[in-house]
Amino acid sequence: MQVWEGSARVLLREQNYRLTFTVEPVGHRLSGTLDNRSSGDRFSVTGTLLPVEVGAELTAQISAGESPKLSASILGLGVSGLSLKADALLSGRVTGRRFTGTLRVGGLSSPITLRQTAP
């Protein structure tokens, strides 16, 4: 199991994250969780950690899963089943014990930096 911690500035606010995952060595598939330590939210993570000449490329889908849904109507117009939390994409490069990449949420990209914690 790998644990990475760091931060990203999302919508003008600094957010602290902890990414925890395991990697299947044959297919390089990863699965785990991303905790937003600033808000207390937890998301599931699936993707790949592919070795490259220097380090590895990480690409992962972040899913809100079974987050609360909004159902509302005003004057006969409304929404039903709208997730209150957005899915996201995490991508970037691992070099040594440092991950530098992008967290893309709802069409907005934010730079993110994570450091691997001691095993």
Rank of each mutant, 00 (worst) to 15 (best):
G101Y: 02
A118S: 15
V10H: 00
L50V: 10
L114Q: 05
L30N: 15
L89N: 12
L11D: 12
T48H: 09
R93Q: 11
V54G: 13
G65L: 08
L82P: 04
G40M: 04
G92S: 13
M1G: 11
D35V: 00
T95G: 07
L58S: 04
G6V: 02
S110W: 00
G101L: 03
T113Q: 09
S91Y: 07
A86K: 15
L70G: 01
P68T: 11
D35E: 15
L58Q: 06
V45R: 01
G6F: 01
A86S: 15
S63Q: 11
R37C: 04
L89R: 15
E14T: 10
T117C: 03
R42L: 15
A64M: 07
R42V: 14
Q15N: 10
S39W: 04
S63R: 08
L75E: 04
L90W: 02
L34Y: 02
T20F: 01
L49E: 12
N36I: 07
R104P: 00
L82R: 12
F21M: 01
L108Q: 15
V94M: 03
G76Y: 03
A64Y: 03
Q15P: 00
P25F: 08
E57V: 07
Q61F: 12
T46Q: 14
L19F: 12
F99A: 06
S44K: 05
R98A: 09
D87G: 07
G47C: 08
L108Y: 10
S63D: 11
G32Y: 07
P111N: 13
F43Y: 13
N36A: 07
Q116G: 04
W4C: 03
Q15H: 10
T33W: 00
Q15K: 11
L75I: 01
G106T: 10
G47F: 04
E14Y: 06
L34P: 04
V79G: 12
S109N: 11
S83Q: 05
A86P: 06
Q2I: 02
S83A: 08
G65Y: 03
V54E: 13
S38K: 01
L49A: 09
S63F: 02
A88M: 14
R104S: 13
S38P: 06
L75S: 13
W4V: 03
N36C: 12
E66V: 08
V52C: 08
W4E: 04
M1L: 10
V94P: 04
N16S: 09
Q61P: 01
L11Q: 13
T113I: 12
T113H: 02
M1E: 09
L58A: 05
N16G: 01
A72I: 02
G6K: 05
V26K: 08
L108D: 13
L34T: 01
G96T: 04
V26Q: 13
S80D: 07
S67E: 11
A8P: 01
A72R: 03
Y17W: 05
G101N: 03
L90M: 06
R37P: 02
M1P: 10
W4N: 02
